[in-house]
C-alpha cells in the first residue's frame, strides 16, 4: 500500500503542476499535453513514455486496490462482533481512508472516460485539444461538483496516507514525526488546492475561450 501509494502520489504532484499550465492559455496547455506524448524522443518512440507511465500507474492502482481489499477483509474478520457502544475518535482523515479510496477509484474512472477517451464528455470531445475539453467539463455544474468533491477526498486520503506510508516504511521516528505530519498536511493542501484551481479558474472565467 505504502509503495503504490507513494508512486501515485508522485504522479499526482507532477500532474497537478502540469494542470496549472492551463492558466497560461490554450496554446501553452495544449503544447504541454502534446509534449507528454513526445517525452524522451528521440530515444523513446512517440507515446512510449506516456504508455510506460500509464502501465506503472495501472500497476500501482491495482496493487493499491488489491492491498486495500485484502487489508479491509482482514480487518473486518479481526472483529466479527462490533462494539455495542461505538465511539468515534480517530481523525476524519483516518476514518475516511476506506470510503475515500473508493470515491477516488470511481472518480478516476469518470475522469478517464471524460478527458482521456471522451466517452462521457460533455460537449464535443476534441482529441488533441485538452484545453477546450477541460473548459467544457468544468462549464457543467456536475463536472465541477464531482471534481471538487473528489479532490477534497484526495486531500484527506493523502493527508493520512502519506504519513502512514512513511510509518509503514519505518521512516518516522519521535523527532521526525512532527515534520512528517507537516509535510503530509502541506502536500494534501497543495494537491487539493492545485487541482481545484482548475475548475475554479473555469468557473470564475479566468480560464475560458479566448
Amino acid at each position: 500500500m505504502a509503495v503504490s501509494g507513494l508512486v501515485m502520489l508522485l504522479y499526482l504532484v507532477v500532474h497537478m503542476i502540469g494542470n496549472l499550465e492551463i492558466y497560461f492559455g490554450a496554446g501553452e496547455f495544449n503544447a504541454y499535453a502534446h509534449w507528454l506524448r513526445t517525452v524522451g524522443e528521440p530515444f523513446m518512440h512517440d507515446e512510449w513514455t506516456l504508455w510506460l507511465v500509464r502501465v506503472v500507474l495501472v500497476a500501482a492502482v491495482v496493487a493499491h486496490a488489491v492491498s486495500a481489499y485484502q487489508l479491509s477483509r482482514r480487518d473486518i474478520r479481526a472483529r466479527p462482533t462490533p462494539y455495542v457502544h461505538r465511539r468515534r475518535r480517530a481523525s476524519y482523515a483516518t476514518r475516511t481512508m476506506r470510503w475515500g479510496g473508493i470515491i477516488l477509484g470511481l472518480f478516476v474512472v469518470w475522469h478517464l472516460l471524460d478527458l482521456t477517451t471522451g466517452t462521457v464528455h460533455a460537449g464535443g470531445f476534441q482529441p488533441g485539444h485538452p484545453y477546450q475539453n477541460v473548459v467544457d467539463t468544468f462549464s457543467t455544474w456536475y463536472g465541477d461538483v464531482v471534481y471538487i468533491v473528489a479532490m477534497l477526498a484526495l486531500g484527506l486520503h493523502v493527508r493520512h496516507g502519506f504519513w502512514s506510508a512513511a510509518q509503514t516504511l519505518g521512516v518516522g521516528s519521535g523527532a521526525r514525526d512532527r515534520a512528517l505530519k507537516t509535510v503530509a498536511d502541506v502536500l494534501a493542501l497543495l494537491l487539493t488546492a492545485g487541482f481545484i484551481a482548475v475548475p475554479v479558474g473555469v468557473m470564475t472565467g479566468v480560464v475560458s475561450w479566448r
Partner: peptide
C-alpha cells in the same frame, strides 16, 4: 487485523507506549 495507523492503540495504551513504536518495528 492489519494496521492502518489510526493511532487508537497508542491513545488507549495505559502505559503510554508511543505510536512510533510501530514505525520502528516496521523499520
Amino acid at each position: 487485523g492489519g494496521c492502518t495507523l489510526t493511532g487508537e492503540c497508542a491513545t488507549a495504551c495505559p502505559k503510554g507506549i508511543p505510536l512510533t513504536s510501530i514505525t520502528r518495528m516496521n523499520r
